[in-house]
Design a binder for these strands. Structure first.
Lengths: 153, 153
DNA sequence: CAAAAATTCATGCGTTTGCATCTACCTCAA
DNA sequence: TTGAGGTAGATGCAAACGCATGAATTTTTG
């Protein structure tokens, strides 16, 4: 029997949700979120991927949090000396964020352990071919493959 | 060039996280979460898939929430008449949950709109073959087929 | 060029979450 | 049977969240 295209799409999305939930729970249960919580790590990791200081709003596009929640999460990270906040010279409303040295160290330390854990879980179930395929499909699903109209200058 | 297996695994996981975040944001922005929030819907949906009354703990395994948070979320749904809570005759500690008629109606109404939205987003980017492949890989990633496995150091 | 509209981030406030802990019940061994 | 140990769910409480809104700045428009 053949599932309809809509049904296929919903089943695929649900399987992604389940995989996300299962692995997130497993990762959350690990004993490595002492220095920073998982969400805080998410922000540190995102910042670590940007060489230049990043706008708060830009950060918000990559993090699953409301704008006020992100604003205050960043504020806490600044208070703890993990993130540096500065005014954007090009836009008086904007705020530029960057990792401090401490923040970078914490990100690397936690990231190392977390990354090992991720690799363990993923490799336990998927072949390398699967991983490549999953990455390709997810990138496309997120609209992040080459064919995206981006404001380049 | 060849990425290491650990690198492949982390890249795959990150792409899944990004896809999850991007689509979740899109879905959250839709105007259909008036009757129930997205998390509440998640619970209603999970219950709708179980024909028999379901234990709270069982529900918790499928929902990305702490046990107390889920306990109270369910409590609110009970108060609003969407979920029925009863003692488990087989285990005095347990709590059995089930959708009420109202709850079932709400789940179907919201689910219809949400499902259409999901289908729209997924179909816009993926072929049916992709959807099947994604589902298969995610099921495996979640350890939801055949071989169950325990993880330790 | 001034006023209106839009944008960026912060803040007030009520709600929800997670952690630690508690209670009630089940299981099992002696 | 009984008491130790384990499990299911509820509750107190501080932290964190989302919504609505505010303040400051930029952009647009007439």
């Amino acid at each position: 029997m053949t599932r309809s295209s809509g049904r296929l799409a919903n089943d695929a999305w649900e399987s992604l949700l389940v995989a996300h939930a299962v692995l997130m729970k497993r990762f959350a249960a690990e004993d490595i979120w002492v220095e920073v919580s998982m969400r805080e790590y998410d922000v540190l990791y995102t910042l670590s991927k940007c060489d230049e200081p990043t706008r708060l709003g830009e950060l918000g596009r990559n993090v699953l949090l409301s704008q006020p929640a992100l604003s205050r999460l960043v504020e806490r990270l600044v208070e703890r000396g993990l993130v540096a906040r500065s005014a954007d010279p090009a836009d008086g409303r904007g705020v530029l964020l960057d990792l401090t040295e401490t923040g970078r160290h914490v990100q690397r330390r936690v990231g190392g352990r977390h990354g090992a854990s991720v690799a363990r879980s993923v490799r336990a179930e998927l072949t390398e071919e699967d991983m490549l395929k999953l990455e390709e499909i997810c990138r496309r699903l997120a609209g992040q493959d080459g064919s995206e109209r981006e404001n380049e200058e």
